[in-house]
């Protein structure tokens, strides 16, 4: 091992892995919540739906489209003033979080909207015919009925987020991307680049495996 990877210091790799997992988990949870809220807003205000409202729909849709279109590496730089206010610093794992969430939530919101549109209109009609309130329809029909799609959507988003954390690492956010940049790229230690790649792949595979498992467990169709 020492011969194959002469420069690697395992405690550094381990520390970076923990940082990556930390950034990914926090941003996945926040993206899940924010994305579902935005997705619901998009769905419910769309034509023919419970809260049909052209203006709100147009505003939300435009915001989502704009943030989805900005390349992530530019979004981080663009959000520097905002991040400084919120986190108080531009360096470290926490500094990456606002950009990660703002970058991923609109992407996930679109997936949520698609998932909700896939729900059979008849089921929503049946709930209305039973006298359900809108909040009941959201909590007991829309979310449970679209859950497999919501989970597979967050799986895809989480994997994208792992990639985003690596990019954030290049501008000082810590994690495996940061390690690959500082040790691998800037100091020409190719074994660092290699080992960080392996660790990122492991994280991605684990996320995919967990996502697939949960989706198949809850999908009763």
């Amino acid at each position: 091992m020492q011969e194959l990877l002469p420069n690697v210091k395992w405690n550094k790799v381990w520390e970076a892995t923990v940082e990556t997992i930390y950034m990914t988990s926090i941003s996945v949870v926040a993206t899940f919540v924010l994305g579902i809220i935005l997705g619901l807003l998009l769905f419910l205000t769309s034509k023919g739906n419970i809260y049909e409202n052209k203006i709100i729909h147009a505003i939300v849709a435009a915001t989502v489209n704009i943030f989805r279109s900005i390349p992530f590496i530019i979004l981080i730089i663009l959000l520097i003033p905002f991040t400084k206010v919120i986190v108080g610093s531009m360096i470290g794992e926490n500094a990456a979080l606002p950009a990660l969430i703002i970058g991923a939530a609109p992407f996930y919101a679109r997936m949520v909207e698609i998932a909700l549109r896939e729900i059979d209109k008849g089921v929503i009609e049946a709930a209305k015919a039973m006298g359900a309130k809108t909040s009941t329809i959201i909590w007991k029909v829309l979310l449970p009925e679209s859950m497999p799609a919501l989970v597979s959507g967050i799986t895809v988003t989480a994997i994208a987020l792992v990639g985003y954390t690596a990019m954030a690492g290049f501008v000082g956010a810590g994690g495996l991307g940061n390690l690959a940049f500082l040790e691998g790229y800037q100091r020409f230690q190719y074994d660092y680049t290699f080992i960080t790649t392996i660790f990122i792949l492991i994280i991605v595979f684990l996320i995919q495996f967990a996502g697939d498992y949960v989706t198949s467990k809850i999908d009763k169709r």
Partner: peptide
């Protein structure tokens, strides 16, 4: 088309 909740 019955309109049952498949998740239940």
């Amino acid at each position: 088309h019955f309109n049952l909740l498949w998740s239940r």
